[in-house]
Write a protein that binds this DNA or RNA. Structure first.
Length: 636
RNA sequence: GCCAGCGUAGCUCAAUCGGCAGAGCAGCUGAUUUGUAAUCAGCAGGUUAUCGGUUCAAGUCCGAUCGCUGGCUCCA
């Protein structure tokens, strides 16, 4: 006998030795239709599985989180079957479910143009209509290898050869059989709402020295509505694309003649950046940081000492020779901050040092990875380095993490996820230091009460780190902040401070960036706000609109008064109708539109219209300014 | 860097089989005197990314370079 758990939490007993299909036969028909597969003693199984005795079985319904993965994985198989029908000589690689869909990698006789997606979709629809059951087969490893070799499936063969001896499972649907762990949908007809989305190159096993395969991406849902909603979300993301908004709102650009990945900040983007920087500097001063400034170049010897020429050279631009000395453009600020530390001897009494810099660095990124503001070759990090004693270290970590959250929250981000990356196999530094630092990071994370994951072995070779991801208005995650220990550079530069015991000690060194880079962070902000910046960040906070040229004098007076009050105001006195100018200001996402006609000029008032609420009627100037100042102070 | 797709006016896009490069918006000039999301007219705007090739003829076909897009690898 086995125990069957129903979704409502109740349980009943059932015979063992029957299949899942038979098991659910007696259930409520509406529930029966919902069941995709089973969980037997916590493991996902096909509905056709013969159930063992004494098992605990629960039903996996369409709405359960595991079900969508089963659906998508089966969709990948159906796509592979379709591709095999169209290209019998295709070689199969892997085809998993992923976050928003699925993919399958193939080695194909010719490159697929995008038009082929529709052809493959048609074939998939045929397979779905033919309604093949997914049939699981168990084959001994040797036989599986022989079978795959005979079929010329070299990628699959490689995968099986690395599995442990024993039974290997295959799944068959119609004429198509594929190596697979499963489970799958009961039959192909269960796939109703799907779409193939793109074709891309992908290295076999993600290794750039191996074959380039063709990857077909698609997505699938249980209902048409969910599929449509997904594409709506993609459209929404396209509307928010910072590259599009950057052009439309005149925030930034790039120029072929200047080079890829090099950003031109236009005046309006520059205003936003200035506000961000001013806020950042103020907060750093309040939080015990000193601001430093360092050059863009340094002699190659510096990078030799720091070790960057060893482990970072492929990301650095080639050097330039000046009077027989080689200079390199900086990809990081740390060696310069270290040089400040080393400019004189340091005492334990002085520590900690918290030195921050908006340091512009240049990194050679391979051309294929560049993307708008989010991945560039020249960028300004909101960098800082903390040098402290071991006894200060835990508190410094606490402080820096709390500070980080405070800054990010000011920009309207509310959801965070933290990742603690621990010591990788290949690394430098004393074991005690790694242990103490990792512990301090973990404790600091736990104090925040925020969700986190441990990325075992995911740290840099020189130290453990915390990466912090923010969630934007569309629920997308972005990594900005990072807090990293460095056990490498203090050693290489022989950093010391004189302790109370008159001995030399090595300080802890912590790298940290809160916003990450100003370019990237600005890009994320543009997408998060869809270009409609809150008042404190808006490049143009208010535009003054005289109704008639006769009102220009009063409009100019209001404009001057706003500017004098610290508001980023503009005056639009163009010879256009008021509706035209309002439309333009609205499309430029200006928060306040201030209409002044003869009535306002006489009374010394202003007709206020906001981007969000529309016409608010006639206000006194003081009321308007009070409202704006409050909104700016609240960063709302 | 690799795979695939792409590059026409500031922007969005036309241009049939290789046969005179075109429109809307933006810009400029003029008229209009305007009250909460587009007033009208005229003008100007191009070495079709760049360089080379095939052809009587190239935006269109071929090659190289630069750049962009989506992925892969890598990452703030």
């Amino acid at each position: 006998m086995l125990k069957l758990w129903l979704p409502d939490g109740s349980s009943r007993t059932a015979e063992s030795g029957i299949s899942g299909k038979e098991l659910i036969a007696g259930l409520d028909p509406s529930l029966k239709k919902e069941v995709i597969c089973l969980k037997v003693d916590g493991e996902l199984k096909d509905l056709s599985t013969l159930l063992p005795a004494d098992a605990e079985v629960s039903l996996v319904r369409r709405s359960d989180p595991e079900a969508i993965e089963v659906l998508r994985h089966s969709a990948a198989h159906i796509m592979a079957q379709a591709v095999k029908r169209l290209f019998p000589e295709a070689k199969l690689a892997i085809g998993p479910a992923i976050e928003n869909g699925f993919y399958y990698d193939f080695d194909l006789p010719r490159p697929l143009p995008p038009e082929d997606l529709a052809v493959i979709e048609e074939e998939m629809k045929r397979i779905i209509k033919e309604d093949y059951p997914f049939i699981r087969q168990l084959v001994p490893k040797e036989e599986a290898l022989a079978r795959l070799r005979a079929a010329g499936e070299k990628f699959k063969e490689e995968l099986v050869s690395e599995l442990e001896d024993g039974e290997i499972s295959f799944y068959q649907q119609g004429e198509f059989t594929d190596l697979c762990r499963g489970p799958h949908l009961p039959s192909t007809r269960y796939l109703q709402a799907f779409k193939l989305t793109s074709i891309a190159g992908a290295y076999w096993r993600g290794d750039s020295s191996r074959e380039m395969l063709q990857r077909i991406y698609g997505t699938a849902f249980f209902s048409r509505e969910e599929l449509d909603a997904y594409f709506k979300l993609l459209e929404e993301a396209a509307r928010r694309d910072h590259r599009k908004l950057g052009r439309e709102l005149d925030l930034f650009s790039t120029d072929d003649q200047i080079g890829a990945g090099l950003i031109l900040w236009h005046p309006k983007g520059g205003r936003v950046r200035q506000v961000i920087e001013d806020f950042w500097r103020d907060e750093h001063r309040k939080n015990g940081y000193e601001l430093v400034f360092t050059p863009h170049l340094g002699r190659s010897q510096l990078w030799e000492t720091s070790g960057h020429l060893g482990f970072y050279r492929e990301n650095m631009y080639s050097g330039m020779e000046v009077e027989g000395q080689e200079y390199l453009i900086k990809p990081m600020n740390c060696p310069f901050h270290i040089a400040i530390y080393k400019s004189r001897s340091r005492s334990y009494r002085e520590l900690p040092f918290r030195w921050a810099e908006l340091g512009t660095v240049y990194r050679y990124e391979r051309s294929g990875v560049l993307h708008g503001l989010l991945r560039v070759r020249g960028f300004t990090q909101d960098d800082a380095h903390i040098f402290c004693r071991p006894d200060q270290m835990p508190e410094e970590i606490d402080r820096v993490l709390a500070f980080c959250l405070k800054i990010l929250r000011a920009f309207g981000f509310k959801e965070f996820k933290l990742y603690l990356a621990t010591r990788p196999e290949k690394s430098v530094g004393a074991e005690e230091r790694w242990a103490a630092a990792t512990e301090a990071l973990r404790t600091a994370i736990e104090k925040t009460g925020l969700p986190y994951e441990v990325d075992e072995g995911g740290g840099a070779f020189y130290g453990p780190k915390i990466d912090l991801k923010i969630k934007d208005a569309l629920g997308r995650e972005w990594q900005c902040s990072t807090i990293q220990f460095d056990f490498n550079e203090p050693e290489r530069f022989e950093l010391t401070y004189k302790g109370a015991d008159s001995q030399d000690h090595q300080p802890y060194m912590i790298h940290r960036a809160l916003l990450g880079s100003l370019e990237r962070f600005f890009g994320i902000l543009v997408e998060n706000y869809e270009g409609a910046f809150p008042l404190w960040l808006a490049p143009v906070q208010a535009v003054v609109l005289p109704v008639l040229p006769a009102n220009l004098e009063y409009a100019g007076e209001l404009y001057d008064w706003l500017r004098a009050s610290g508001i980023r105001a503009e005056l639009d006195s163009r010879n256009e109708k008021i509706g035209y100018r309002i439309r333009e200001a609205q499309m430029q996402k200006v928060p306040y539109m201030l209409v002044v006609g003869s009535k306002e000029a006489e009374s010394g008032q202003v007709a206020v219209r906001t981007r969000k609420e529309g016409d608010l009627g006639v206000w006194s100037r003081e009321e308007l300014l009070a409202r704006m100042e409050k909104e700016i102070a609240e960063k709302s």
